[in-house]
Design a protein around this nucleic acid. Structure first.
Length: 255
DNA sequence: AACCGAATCAACCGCCACGAT
DNA sequence: CATCGTGGCGGTTGATTCGGT
């Protein structure tokens, strides 16, 4: 037996919403709220629509403070940075862009941004680059790694949170006094990472060699610019191509 | 002006997570 | 613990619009 449908398909209207339907839905929610039950809402509101359709229409178009139209350069940058880090988790990306919906961002990425980034720039093969030793680890909460980030980064990381698959973030400082945040994780430690309100400008993925030194796998800029090829759009995809056990993820504020 | 392919984006579909029972 | 109902999410579709010839 199949799954029960969420509504009576034969009696619901599909396709574009009319202004009258929009007005009915908006008026009902303004008066009564969603009531925490989208499935029952269309019947109460006098709409011949599926509850899911009402929810989508409200979230994407009718709720207050929705922003439509041109994306700014800042928004482009945030989308690219987050996509390079977490992949196509549009709802998380949308949470970092006030007024934008996950659907809007998804469409924008698929129709414009992806082409802008991947369509113009030539692609080069994955390369491992040499490791400048310009940083000194000065944080006590990460005692298992001799940290030498792959390159120098001005600026200081801001807020973040991690899942249990990662170490606590460490602040790492360079010889010129600038800093970044670093996390380490093992290859088989499971799911992706999260960070909250990070507002970071760049990310660097390093593998930790047997000699304790890190080697740069890629930067967020490399991924966002498509320089690693479309098969490597997330950290998770990247690390599957490397054999070492421990990876270091660094986040940085500033160029 | 007409045609046609490309681009856009609103909406749908199906799956999964999670809370209630 | 198992089942069910619902919300939420990401992938995909298809109607409409745009732009080139």
């Amino acid at each position: 037996m199949g799954r029960a449908p969420c509504c009576d398909k034969a009696n619901v209207k599909k396709g574009p919403w009319s202004p009258e339907e929009d007005a009915k839905l908006k008026h009902f929610i303004d008066q009564h709220g969603t009531g925490g039950n989208w499935i029952a809402l269309p019947h109460k509101a006098g709409l011949r629509r599926c509850g899911k359709s009402c929810r989508l229409r409200w979230l994407n178009y009718l709720r207050p403070n929705i922003k439509h139209g041109q994306f700014s350069d800042d928004e482009d940058r945030i989308i690219c940075t987050l996509f390079a880090s977490i992949g196509s988790r549009w709802s998380i990306i949308a949470a970092n862009l006030p007024g934008r919906t996950d659907n809007d961002i998804k469409n924008y990425w698929n129709t414009k941004l992806k082409k802008k980034l991947f369509g113009i720039l030539p692609q080069r093969p994955l390369q491992i680059q040499p490791t400048p030793s310009t940083f000194v680890h000065n944080c006590s909460n990460n005692n298992n790694i001799n940290q030498t980030p792959a390159t120098s980064f001005p600026g200081l990381g801001t807020s973040y949170s991690t899942t249990s698959s990662l170490t606590a973030p460490s602040v790492v400082q360079s010889s010129d006094g600038s800093s970044c945040n670093q996390f380490s994780r093992s290859k088989d430690s499971g799911s992706d990472f999260n960070y909250g309100g990070g507002n970071m400008d760049s990310y660097f993925y390093n593998e930790l060699g047997d000699d304790g030194n890190q080697k740069l796998i890629a930067s967020s800029g490399d991924i966002a610019n498509g320089l690693l090829g479309s098969n490597y759009s997330t950290f998770e995809q990247l690390i599957t191509t490397h054999t070492c056990d421990t990876f270091i993820f660094s986040e940085h504020k500033g160029d």
